[in-house]
Amino acid sequence: MNKHLGAGALLTTLIASAAPAAEIGVAMSNFDDTFLTVLREAMTDLDAGDDGIELSFEDATLDIGRQLSQVENFIAKGVDAIIIHPVDQTATTQMTKLVSGAGIPLVYVNRPPIEPSLPEKVVFVASNELDSGRLEAEGICDLLGGEGKTLLLMGDLAYEAARVRSQDVRDVFATPECSGIEIIDEQPGTWMRTSGMDITTNWLSAGYDFDAIISNNDEMALGAIQAMKAAGVAVGTGEDDIKVAGIDATQDALAAMAAGDLAVTVFQDAAGQGVGAVEAAKALIAGEEVPVENWIPFELVTPANMDKYVATN
């Protein structure tokens, strides 16, 4: 049976009893990512504690084969648990089989595995993507008064997050309240700031007339803002400004919001996911029961409430 826990409930449950001294292998898809840096640093802060837990990090540099090899090395080393942020969710079936077959507890973080059911001692800690794109699209719909033309900056479509977040936006704009908003073009990017800048520059060069850009993440949103400002296009929350929305509420994004450039973002609790993943691994090592699904909620961030998040992420 699937169970759902928020960040507070998850940590309260899992911190209740201390895990024995152990080594946890952490296989990250990429170190060169703002959101994942926050997630990793939250894990590292726990590692600095005195509970005897040691974390060993590996960077797959977005290479599926490299990540599989790193997971195999963790298994050969005999770590007590493994945490994986998968390069590609289509590879989780193989990694789950390898780790579970070795009898090692496994925690997926941020990107849930694709398997419809998971073996014993395999869980995930993430945020439900059905909420992320919905929240940013509703924020833009409110700013546009339910009417206007938008452009959609999608992430790498090999990832479920990009597909789900993009569909969330389309679904919101299909509702009666927002049906006056038209997506006039949508392009996939690489989640990176440079990608958002390049795609937006192309849109501007093509002469598109639009009222907002909705991005699957903050980094591409920031790139879009840079491209428009370089072209002399007004961005912000004013009546005649182009509205830009992102997801993650990174510190760079919040700084852009404070400067009046970014209109909407959605807080994804990177630190909460990182801490939750380590605590879940510790609990599994200690033989405790952990829910398969551990959801850390998304939250809408606007200039009106951004102060709450400045020191959070």
Rank of each mutant, 00 (worst) to 15 (best):
residue 2 N to E: 14
residue 5 L to C: 10
residue 9 A to Q: 14
residue 10 L to V: 11
residue 17 S to D: 15
residue 19 A to E: 12
residue 22 A to D: 05
residue 28 M to T: 03
residue 35 F to H: 05
residue 35 F to E: 08
residue 36 L to Q: 11
residue 36 L to D: 11
residue 42 A to K: 03
residue 49 G to D: 07
residue 49 G to I: 08
residue 59 D to R: 07
residue 62 L to K: 15
residue 67 Q to I: 01
residue 79 V to W: 00
residue 90 T to H: 09
residue 91 A to Y: 08
residue 92 T to P: 02
residue 99 V to W: 00
residue 101 G to W: 00
residue 109 V to I: 13
residue 110 N to K: 04
residue 114 I to Q: 13
residue 127 S to A: 13
residue 128 N to M: 12
residue 129 E to P: 12
residue 130 L to W: 13
residue 137 A to F: 05
residue 148 G to N: 04
residue 148 G to F: 08
residue 150 T to S: 13
residue 164 V to C: 07
residue 165 R to N: 06
residue 166 S to K: 05
residue 169 V to Y: 05
residue 175 T to I: 09
residue 178 C to L: 03
residue 179 S to R: 12
residue 183 I to A: 08
residue 190 T to K: 12
residue 194 T to I: 13
residue 198 D to H: 07
residue 199 I to M: 11
residue 215 S to C: 08
residue 215 S to F: 07
residue 221 A to H: 03
residue 222 L to T: 06
residue 222 L to F: 06
residue 232 G to N: 10
residue 236 G to E: 04
residue 236 G to I: 12
residue 243 K to Y: 02
residue 257 M to K: 04
residue 278 V to I: 12
residue 280 A to R: 05
residue 287 G to E: 10
residue 288 E to G: 15
residue 296 I to N: 07
residue 307 D to P: 06
residue 309 Y to M: 04
residue 313 N to R: 13
